[in-house]
Amino acid sequence: MHASELITEILRVLAAGLLLISFAMLSGRRTQQLITLFAWQGALLFVSTCLVAYSSGLTEMYYSAALTLLLKVIALPWILHRLIKRLGAQSDSEQLVNVPMTMLAGLVLVIFAFGLAQPISSMATTITRHTLGIALAVILLAFLMMITRRKAVTQVIGFLAMENGLFLAATSATYGMPMVIELGIALDVLVGVFILGIFFFQIREQFDSLDLHNLESLKED
């Protein structure tokens, strides 16, 4: 078998794995479990970026792969773990509304994403063009996850997962964004997490809980 064919096959498997993790996150109840899943998603992303870099011979991609490894597999999960430990929210779990229905909505989103990606991926020339649909689906699923959750930490994880999807979309459509933009996004994400972390403490101090449901009382009647 040809090496590039093999790589394409592996990339597809990895992309499918990413989608699988997205669904697992959609149905996961425990915060800690979600962070682990997020780290795994980063790891898969790292491997797939490395493979794309290898097959396309772009050195830049190796940098962005390394960035993924550092930020999404090591740094952010560590920060989040620390955060929930400090917040005392390790064993937090939330009541989900009707998991099967959410999953069904997720399925429909997947179909929609693929339908959307079809024209774009038929124009792209990258070896990862088939995974564009999956990348879009990962973004939409992360969005869905943010909608269905009420805890602050899980919202942040959803946000980060969405960024993963964006990254995958960029690599699959055009072999990644320019390095400057990527660095900028990485920094944004990092800063975003810090700021949100500070928000968590504020929220908890105000309401004695991290349930965003409490924020509803802030609106004017």
């Binding site: 597809r12 498997v13 699988l20």
Partner: peptide, 9 residues
């Protein structure tokens, strides 16, 4: 061939 992604699911 190498595993088809759908096989995982």
């Amino acid at each position: 061939s190498v595993i088809d992604p759908s096989v995982i699911f």
